[in-house]
């Protein structure tokens, strides 16, 4: 069973100061499913979401994504700076020793320069985290959770509850930003405007228009994001998240603030994403009609804890869920 799970969260806990926002949640998302996360306000849904997306480090617990441990509590992170400074410090000591031993000045200067280069290389490694640097971390026993961009690279796309588009960029540019990590041209290509760069940009633009078309924003690609109507902004955010070709799409209240017709259309879109693109989708929703309509499975959180899990029907009949939602109009 575990092999078929795209994402596997084990006993994930997050504390903010004294407040326990998420408490020991076990959670799995099977491949090609639509899973919903529901619960009253402040139940810890968005916090949990942000942990999965790599924005918060969990206080305890771990998350595997596509079979790889991506997120867990940081381990021995305080050692990392020593890793950056260590080699350079050693080299600097060697240079100082050479100076004391009356080595020629050029040799001392060269050694000092090597120390500087070592420092820069280590610092750049820490920033870009290439393979050799990650191996070094593993060898030193240091574990740091993946950052949001690492999660995107690994195949996770997300939207935000309060839309966070790049407001002063056009719809097309927003989607192109979403495709950023799949484009390979570096600054060198860009400066020289190499054929590779131009071809890639052209291809990316075609793909971005396709995605806009897919979510229903065909003639809006030149419009600034902030000038789009509200529903279109939500759809644009979905298109932007699709830009990185995700395997798992996290949608944080995709129908919030939408009228019934727009909500219907969003539901149709979500269904289509699964059937046509083969995406797996994790949904946070308030609107019970949406949740019950499209989810394969529903998980209910309350006060940071999981209180129920199952098919929409099972959850609907669960007395604890009814209690948690008592008074809420949607239940």
């Amino acid at each position: 069973m575990t092999d078929a799970n795209l994402l596997d969260a084990r006993r994930v806990t997050k504390r903010f100061g004294g407040l326990v926002a998420v408490n020991g949640i076990d959670f799995t998302i099977p491949e090609r499913s639509i899973v919903s996360l529901i619960g009253p306000n402040g139940a810890g849904k968005t916090t949990f979401f942000n942990i999965i997306a790599g924005i918060y480090d969990p206080t305890a617990g771990a998350i595997r994504f596509r079979g790889r441990q991506m997120i867990a509590r940081t381990h021995r992170a305080f050692l990392e700076p020593f890793l950056w400074v260590g080699p350079a410090a050693v080299m600097a000591l060697v240079a100082a020793g050479a100076g004391l031993a009356r080595a020629p000045v050029t040799a001392v200067v060269a050694l000092g320069f090597v120390a500087l280069l070592l420092l820069i290389v280590m610092l750049l490694g820490a920033v870009a985290r290439p393979l050799w640097y990650r191996r070094l971390l593993v060898r030193a026993g240091i574990f740091r959770s993946s950052r949001p961009n690492d999660m995107v690279e690994a195949g996770l796309g997300r939207t935000f509850q309060n839309i966070r588009l790049f407001h002063n960029m056009t719809a097309l540019e927003n989607v192109l930003v979403g495709m950023h990590c799949r484009l390979k041209a570096n600054w060198w290509d860009a400066m020289l405007s190499t054929p590779k760069d131009r071809a890639e940009e052209a291809r990316a633009e075609i793909r971005a228009r396709e995605l806009l078309h897919l979510v229903g924003l065909r003639d809006r690609d030149g419009e600034l994001a902030k000038n789009l109507p509200y529903g279109d902004q939500r759809r644009l955010e979905v298109a932007r998240a699709l830009g990185s070709d995700p395997a798992l799409l996290l949608l944080d209240e995709p129908t919030a603030g939408m009228n019934p017709r727009e909500t219907q259309e969003m539901m149709a879109l979500i269904n289509k994403l699964r059937t046509e693109l083969g995406l797996t989708i994790l949904l946070i929703e308030h609107d019970m009609k949406v949740v019950m309509g499209i989810s394969d499975r529903v998980t209910v959180l309350d006060h940071g804890e999981k209180i129920a899990e199952g098919t929409p029907d099972e959850v609907r009949r669960n007395p604890r869920v009814v209690e948690a939602y008592l008074g809420a109009p949607a239940a």
Partner: peptide
């Protein structure tokens, strides 16, 4: 430009 506009959203869209 994306970073200038919203750094968190930029990171959540795969920009290092």
């Amino acid at each position: 430009m994306a970073i200038r506009e919203d750094e968190l959203a930029a990171a959540a869209n795969g920009i290092n």
